[in-house]
Design a protein around this nucleic acid. Structure first.
Length: 559
RNA sequence: GAGCGCGUAGCUCAGCCGGUAGAGCAUCUGACUUUUAAUCAGAGGGUCCUGGGUUCGAGUCCCAGCGCGCUCACCA
């Protein structure tokens, strides 16, 4: 019998799309170990809010997960653990929170012991965990949430923690060469939580007592000596040993990380082996860069936020951005949005025409977990084949129409396809909404308007008066005729070589229309002006002329 | 110092398992002239960073180099 799932799996085996390449590593791992389940992990540091990188990591990991399920025909169970390192000590007060003094009084304590500055949760850590979960839920990711504090205190890590204590020397042998001398002298993989101040202590160890499962250390301020069990949440691990311990204790099979963590992955992997475990599969993706080609970091606040992206484009376009070439450094800034949208649409457009093998290499297959929606085609005439309307086209349209009103853009779309409507094309409708916002914020400010000279000024005033005399319901054709009649007597715009032109009734040259675009719209090209005025409204058009003549659009180079 | 990535038309980039070098934009030519460009037809444009190697054959694979960018080496 031909099981479609296994047929797909056969094609998947030869696919070189990166999620399959990644998933194949996991298939080899499963074949090696005979395990019946695969665990994916993504990490999260709850000292900040979830951001675009968090989205990228979960989205990409989900793509690998789905590729793996396809390769194995669903025979191996998969889990995705979104793990929050909320036992980590708070290092500094974030800028973007209220009640900073409240939080500042608890610096150094585990995030789950710092009060919530928003006053909604028992702790700051729990607040941010909740934000992470609602963030991931909002995008519909399937995952399980894990809290470091909960895992530590419940004893789930105890066995591995004791093992690390027993292998203390081996761990130090791995870690110390990676550190500078002054840091190495006090380095300990175990960070005891001070029993009185609750601060996560970074102190040199006095003694390692494997038999009793304890470490001994001294308070640097008072000199007082403490003995702390490494188990039960009394003690946390430095992050590289922590990562390794977690991989080992939970049996993590896959975790990806940015290229800034390449060395950390190596060190943590070595520690896992020292604990007789096997490090997970994974790969290093390139970092996102801001407009100046600098690494995007949450603390710097450069680049673009996920909210900003979603103001101007769909979540699918962002998922596409995450899919596309994860190993290449990419600028993550506003100007990449239109292209991401259009490439996504192009792949969506191609998908129905592709055979199974090519579909598996198509980004939209990975973005939509194997079930991309049908593309929306706008047909020029009933029964026509239709074309997909691109974001670039809409931006161009918004620019030449000079409009932030979706209804005006819809008017132009209907000129092309009379049967189109927001109800019939909901995704196009959304895209039009995105386009007008993008136009308003990024295109319009860069428009260059030209000042009208005396002849142009007179002609525009004449045009404005003539428009005022037209009935409000004047058709595009009526307006177009008016435009020609206004320009015809003006020598500058006369064109005697035009078809049907006579010396008594000259044609009108393109210069007339070009002037309208340059002075009124700040563009070298534009829509058929009669149609524009009809859609835009006669009063609005007159106001536009008045504003242009008043010099309101001219850049004042006051600097 | 170490690591990662990139280098293909004027610009932005594609190029899959090695088989005569591609697209969009830009440029140029032509068509259309109560016309709009969200149009139609066509053209030009390349030392695929350099040098070696493998191969019947290399933009593609391997080695070395050059250039550009980023990251790490304190914390996560």
């Amino acid at each position: 019998m031909t099981d479609p799932a296994s047929e797909l799996a056969q094609f998947a085996k030869t696919s070189n799309a990166w999620p399959f390449e990644e998933a194949k590593k996991l298939v080899a791992r499963v074949e090696r170990t005979g395990q019946k389940q695969v665990l994916f992990e993504t990490g999260y540091g709850p000292s900040g809010l979830p951001h675009i990188g968090t989205f990228g990591e979960v989205a990409r990991t989900t793509m690998v997960r789905h590729a793996f399920e396809t390769l194995t025909g669903g025979q191996i169970a998969t889990r995705l653990l979104a793990f929050s390192d909320d036992l980590d000590g708070l290092r500094k007060v974030p800028d973007n929170i209220p009640n900073k003094e409240l939080v500042a009084a608890h610096l150094g304590k585990p995030l789950t012991e710092v009060p919530d500055p928003f006053g909604k949760y028992p702790s700051f850590g729990e607040h941010n965990n909740a934000r992470l979960r609602s963030f991931l839920d909002h995008f519909g990711f399937k995952y399980e949430f894990g809290s470091s504090t909960e895992y530590y205190t419940s004893g789930r890590f105890d066995a591995t923690l004791l093992k690390m204590l027993a292998r203390y020397d081996a761990v130090q042998k791995i870690m110390l060469p990676s550190l500078r001398a002054e840091r190495a002298s006090t380095y300990s993989p175990f960070l005891p939580i001070h029993p009185r101040t609750r601060i996560v202590m970074q102190v040199a160890l006095d003694e390692v007592d494997v038999a009793r499962g304890l470490i001994a250390w001294r308070d640097p301020d008072t000199g007082e000596r403490f003995e702390t069990p490494v188990t039960g949440g009394a003690c946390k691990l430095q992050w590289k040993p922590d990562w390794a311990m977690r991989w080992c204790a939970l049996g993590v099979d896959y975790e990806m990380a940015g290229k800034d963590l390449i060395d950390s992955v190596k060190l943590s992997g070595a520690i896992v082996r020292a604990l007789d475990g096997a490090p997970p599969e994974g790969f290093n993706y390139e970092l996102f860069l801001d407009e100046n080609s600098q690494k995007i970091s949450k603390s710097k606040g450069n680049g673009i936020t996920i909210e900003q992206w979603l103001t101007y484009a769909s979540p699918e376009s962002l998922a596409f951005f995450m899919y596309w070439k994860p190993r290449e450094a990419k600028k993550l800034y506003f100007d990449v949005i239109p292209r991401a949208v259009d490439e996504y649409l192009a792949f969506l457009d191609a998908y129905p025409r592709q055979d199974a093998k090519n579909r598996l290499g198509n980004a939209v297959w990975h973005i939509h977990s194997g079930e991309p929606p049908a593309p929306e085609f706008i047909a020029h005439e009933a029964g026509g084949k239709g074309t997909a309307i691109s974001f670039a086209m809409l931006l161009n349209l918004a620019a030449v129409a000079n409009s932030e009103d979706p209804a005006v853009l819809w008017g132009f779309v209907r000129r092309y396809a009379p049967a189109a409507s927001p109800e019939k094309y909901p995704r196009l409708d959304k895209m039009i909404g995105y386009a007008v916002l993008y136009f308003r914020d990024f295109v319009k400010p860069k428009k260059v308007y030209r000042a009208a000279d005396e002849v142009e000024r007179a002609a525009l005033e004449q045009l404005s008066d003539a428009l005022a005399a037209l009935p409000a319901e004047a058709s595009a054709e009526d307006i177009q005729t008016l435009l020609y009649d206004i320009a015809r007597p003006i020598p500058r715009y006369q064109n005697f070589s035009a078809k049907g032109a006579t010396p008594e009734r000259p044609g009108v040259s393109n210069d007339w229309f070009n002037m309208l675009y340059q002075v009124l719209l700040g563009e070298d090209r534009g829509p058929r002006f009669g149609s524009f005025a009809a859609l835009y409204g006669l009063d609005n058009t007159r106001a536009l002329i008045a504003d242009a003549l008043a010099g309101k659009f001219l850049k004042t180079d006051a600097a």
